[in-house]
């Protein structure tokens, strides 16, 4: 009897537990950034993801492959604040604890020293640069069907 009860209600409890646990990791999608010919070597641009995060995309080479590009997150690896690019100092700066990163995203001063800004995966397809970012689904326009 105890076994039956434990089995039945135990399994039910497991179902409840699975329900509470987030269904899946946030979905990621490949998003178009720019045609390659619009980003010269040495130039960079700021791409805003659908979720609102800013990605610093820099072209460092001219081979035409994805390895030419870096796409750095603006989330500080220390405690998650937003870093911003300071062009006058050629560095990323985190205002929370005065963290400083060089242009490659390596922490060079402050608490995140030795850490690196995380990168986004990039891909070149048909001469266009794509970046993989978190998806924020767009709801359909409220058309009547």
């Amino acid at each position: 009897m105890a076994l039956g009860l434990a089995g039945g209600y135990g399994a039910f409890g497991a179902v409840l537990g699975r329900f509470i646990y987030p269904a899946r990791a946030a979905e990621r999608v490949w998003q178009f950034v720019t045609p390659l010919n619009r980003l010269a070597t040495g130039d960079s641009l700021t791409y805003t993801t659908p979720a609102g995060a800013e990605v610093h995309v820099t072209r460092r080479n001219d081979t035409g492959g994805s390895e030419d590009f870096t796409a750095l997150s603006n989330v500080c690896p220390h405690l998650g604040c937003q870093v911003h690019w300071q062009p006058q100092h050629n560095r990323y700066f985190c205002p929370c604890h005065n963290g400083v990163f060089d242009s490659d995203g390596r922490g060079i001063a402050g608490p995140p020293e030795g850490m690196v800004l995380s990168g986004y995966p990039v891909e070149v397809r048909n001469g266009m640069l794509f970046v993989e970012v978190e998806a924020v689904p767009l709801r359909a326009p409220e058309t009547r069907s």
């Binding site: 009897m1 105890a2 076994l3 039956g4 009860l5 039945g8 209600y9 179902v15």
Partner: peptide, 14 residues
Amino acid sequence: IIIGSLGGVFLLSL
């Protein structure tokens, strides 16, 4: 016995 087997059926349904 009935409770035990019903628990089993419940488990099976899950």
